[in-house]
Design a protein around this nucleic acid. Structure first.
Lengths: 211, 211
DNA sequence: GAGATAGTGCCACTGAGTGGCGTAAGCCTA
DNA sequence: TAGGCTTACGCCACTCAGTGGCACTATCTC
């Protein structure tokens, strides 16, 4: 059971507030100019905190830029840990992503879009994003292997399944970020995800033939 | 048609020599201690070149540590650009990887093993490695889409196929690097690759059922 | 051998990230 | 509501990766 934000001690509320302020202004500055050309000092000055405090809140300059993405995957991990796993496994993995998406608060998609657009054109962000994704994937495989307790697909197969979904997810993201601004809301992202996920059985069929 | 190294101008030979020396000593130092704790100055002093020259040869500290991997993927790209694409597409992609592997010179597997072991336990290297992989993947998709000229699977499907193979490749690598030292030669890697690639049809079947 | 054309070394600089310590703000008990 | 207690913050100095500029030296070409 989670407490309301209002009921958190003042200290925690302040931390969350500065955290959010950092994400907002950082994404704003990065979007207005460029990830690399914006210095940490600028961000820190804008939010009026010390650089030292920044690194107590985020692990790196990249970390703050990818905050929305990490938020999503954190929700994904908690969902995949509790979701019933009867029936189609890939379907469960996909559904967990839709559910995680729904749990994001208002305004998340704006930040996420900014974050993704930056990541697409900034090598350092691409790298960090991919690493985070692979860490999540490894965690999911561990969780699923644990929950399914040996009765089902092996470690390797689970990982391939996950990576297949992630590949589709990235395709959907690419389509979303490169579409025109009017079509960059959450519903549109969901549509792109459905389209991309639909390609998975096609590929499966492609692999299965000629064998 | 490639010239022999002996027939290259002296300047080029020297560059190649320092490049190789950098990779060797860097991997040695990183392996003996740790990627992060070894400074660039140490490497540069050991090879007796200036830091400035280092950055004319490699783009970053990570770059030199991942040199063996990049070598492999460069060979992969040239192969996939010329290989006949009749029949099974996934098979062609897999075969290109075996071919690229065969083209690596003697001693490559030692360096590659060191590089991979480091990457497995160094977040910064993991990130760079994944980014490079995704760049290669994007290139391969572009090349294949170009060569197949619309008659065959779409952009999305190609990408899923590639990422599926890459996922299997990473599984094979993981098995290889975590096996005991006596089993870490190139033949063993090939065996792990065959095993991992064999999981792909299994996953395809898993996806196809319940649909 | 002389002039053109690289590649190299050196130096100063920026900017990310860290350790340490004093201080202030929020917290808890009486 | 005053006291100590804990936790976070600011500040300072530092390391290290990476870059720009310029003088210098080695290689190539004729």
């Amino acid at each position: 059971m989670q407490k309301n934000p209002e009921e958190l001690p003042l200290r925690e509320r302040k931390k969350l507030r500065t955290r959010q302020a950092l994400v907002d202004t950082a994404l704003e500055l990065f979007t207005a100019r460029d990830f690399t050309s914006v210095t940490l000092d600028e961000i820190v000055d804008a939010v009026e905190i010390s650089k030292r405090t920044f690194f107590r809140t985020f692990t790196s300059k990249e970390d703050v830029a990818l905050a929305p993405e990490k938020e999503l995957w954190a929700a994904y991990l908690t969902d995949i840990g509790t979701r019933p796993l009867t029936g189609h496994l890939l379907g469960a993995c996909e559904d967990a992503l839709f559910t995680a998406l729904e749990q994001m608060t208002d305004g998340w998609e704006r930040r996420f879009l900014a974050s993704r657009s930056l990541a697409d054109r900034t090598p350092a962000l691409t790298a960090h994003s991919l690493r985070h994704c692979s860490e999540v994937s490894a965690n999911v495989v561990r969780i699923l292997a644990d929950r399914l307790a040996g009765q089902s697909p092996g470690h390797t197969e689970l990982r391939l399944l996950l990576d297949l979904m992630l590949a589709a997810w990235h395709c959907a993201l690419e389509a979303w970020t490169s579409s025109d601004a009017a079509q960059q809301d959450r519903a549109a992202l969901v549509r792109h995800m459905h389209e991309a996920f639909a390609a998975i059985p096609t590929v499966a069929a492609l692999v299965a033939q000629d064998r």
